[in-house]
Design a binder for these strands. Structure first.
Lengths: 216, 216
DNA sequence: CAACTGAATGAATAACCATTCATTTTTACT
DNA sequence: AGTAAAAATGAATGGTTATTCATTCAGTTG
């Protein structure tokens, strides 16, 4: 990972295949944010990357594959960040949930370019089975982990009326909806406020563990 | 409205301009759902409508204007439905909120073709100021009305700790996120379940007025 | 019913865009 | 340094698509 980043200083030709692909994917993210999925052309992407027109076909075979890899890229970034939290044995369930929220609204994830990419692909899932299956797999993986955390907290904290499945569905939807707010009304809602809204909901379910700010 | 519908029985040439535009917009919705925003061509739309290729330019001047009218169409349908509820003097605030939820997850709104259109446009708002401004205006109109209802219910119901702005932001985001669930995991979540999730949240804020189903 | 009006058609056009591949440039290896 | 292999280039290609507009057609009017 760091090795890949260091390579960016070398002359273009010396970049590894992996780093070149990453460079092109990041150019794609920028283009989708700037011009929309429908307005992004191969010329746009390669120009954004500062490379020649044919380079995408060389590394990805086709535009369609580049787009699929771009969706996979942001999905992997998101799920791997969450998995690090889930698998961290030093954290209690409560701390894991807290870390999850922090991650959901962190600078790395709440980047309006990436948010635009998420929504661009979500908007095409109905017509593109490949996009749908990529989304479906990360969604169910995260839901399983999160539901489990809520179930443990319910048990340990004596929250007898909490329904972990319901809370997972509600929290996940809330988080996605707040992402939309952050994408569409950038001047209206700041990431920290969005995070406070999410906390406010969790505080309704686990009042002994999470506190809602009194914010107004 | 009914007059327009009745016209659909007439021969093609006798349809009013208004009805023809509606016909083309509905064909556009179907195409965006079936082929995505980027995959929708003029040939697709006109064929879906059973009309000839040049008809869109005749009625909308350009593809771009057709798309803008399509976004306006679903926005208007949504906001006018909500405004009917807000402006119905026979309903109490509590009943209005209930009607709002019912509407958000009604068959008319939760049509996967239309959901696909919402997300398709949301994904392009960052790059298309026109789309953004259409979205921004209906969002703020609805938020004002909804916040007001929550404020009245807070007052009347003695919910001293409720923050109407926060509840409005949270409910709206939750609703949008549930729409995403309904779009992406159609077999996983039914509209009635999504509505129950939204109710579950409102029950946390206004427990004397709304009850969460015990659902499992 | 003949002349008129405007809606609708779809072949033709012109612009756009993904992909190819012959050529050039760089790197690795001896 | 010399050579082979790999990476990158970008002009050319071919397919696609939005838009135009001369023509056709249906409905209306006097």
């Amino acid at each position: 990972m760091e090795a890949v980043k260091a390579e960016l200083n070398k002359t273009p030709r010396s970049l590894s295949k992996q780093a070149r692909r990453k460079q092109l994917i990041e150019a794609t993210i920028k283009c989708i944010a700037d011009k929309g999925l429908s307005g992004t052309t191969m010329a746009d992407v390669t120009q954004q990357a500062g490379l020649s027109l044919g380079i995408v076909n060389l590394h990805f075979q086709s535009k369609e594959k580049l787009l699929i890899e771009t969706l996979s890229y942001i999905s992997d970034e998101y799920t791997s960040g969450l998995n690090e939290i889930f698998n961290d044995d030093k954290l209690t369930p409560e701390q894991k949930i807290l870390a999850h929220i922090n991650f959901d609204f962190s600078r790395k994830i709440i980047d309006r370019n990436k948010l635009a990419v998420w929504f661009a692909f979500w908007g095409e899932t109905k017509s593109r089975p490949t996009y749908l299956s990529i989304c479906a797999s990360y969604i169910s993986e995260i839901a399983n982990n999160l539901t489990h955390l809520f179930a443990v907290l319910k048990q340990q904290g004596g929250y007898s009326t909490v329904n972990p499945d319901l809370v997972c569905t509600c929290y996940t939807a809330l988080s996605d909806g707040l992402w939309l707010d952050l994408l569409i009304t950038p001047k209206g809602l700041k990431p920290a406020q969005a995070q406070a809204v999410a906390m406010h909901y969790l505080a309704t379910q686990f009042p002994n563990h999470f506190k809602s700010q009194t914010g107004h």
